[in-house]
């Protein structure tokens, strides 16, 4: 199984992890691997290149440096601009396409970890999916049998995305409530 967070969203995932408090690079990597990496952990190189990009863009700042050598010693904190960036990422629906679950999963988990409402994310993503599903439904109704079969396949996959996201959000919402007690 591939790493469930794609290259595009590693930066956002790391930023999101920083929202609950400053962390060292190694700590970030560990948290990422545990939550999103599954059997494909991040390379240290990926963490540091991502963090230096975030640093350059003003989304994180160095909060402290431990005695010793190497980039490993830096402690990063998210900036206001970084928080805004995470919020924008979570609020922006993904372009509907098959096998989105990795990014959607990361978004749901991070939304709940940072005290945001997973249903907002779900509603926004559903709206985006429905926009495409309406187009496919319309194409199906005008098309021949071949069009119908192709559109049905896409429609079932998009629906599966939403059902899975809905179930995940419901499960995690319940879990969050339990954890927060």
């Amino acid at each position: 199984m591939a790493c469930i967070v794609t290259g595009m969203s590693i930066g956002h995932a790391l930023l999101g992890l920083l929202e609950s408090g400053p962390r060292h690079g190694y700590d970030l990597k560990r948290a990422f691997d545990e939550k999103f990496g599954h059997d494909r952990p991040l390379h240290y190189g990926q963490v540091y290149s991502t963090m230096s990009r975030l640093l350059k863009n003003g989304l994180v700042e160095v909060d402290g440096v431990e005695a010793g050598d190497g980039p490993d010693r830096k402690r990063y904190a998210i900036t206001d601009a970084g928080i805004t960036d995470v919020a924008r990422w979570l609020a922006t629906p993904e372009k509907p396409e098959p096998y989105l679950q990795s990014t959607l999963y990361t978004k749901v988990v991070l939304a709940l970890m940072t005290g945001r409402d997973a249903s907002d994310l779900l509603d926004t993503q559903r709206a985006e999916h429905l926009r495409l599903m309406r187009i496919l439904t319309d194409r199906k109704r005008r098309g021949d049998l071949a069009d119908q079969l192709v559109c049905d396949h896409a429609l079932f996959h998009l629906e599966a995305d939403l059902r899975w996201l809905e179930l995940t959000a419901a499960r995690l919402d319940g879990l969050t409530k339990e954890v927060r007690g």
Partner: peptide
């Protein structure tokens, strides 16, 4: 069901 809602012009939740 989203596939059923896809027959609509818009949705409210």
């Amino acid at each position: 069901e989203a596939r059923v809602a896809a027959y609509s012009d818009r949705e409210i939740v």
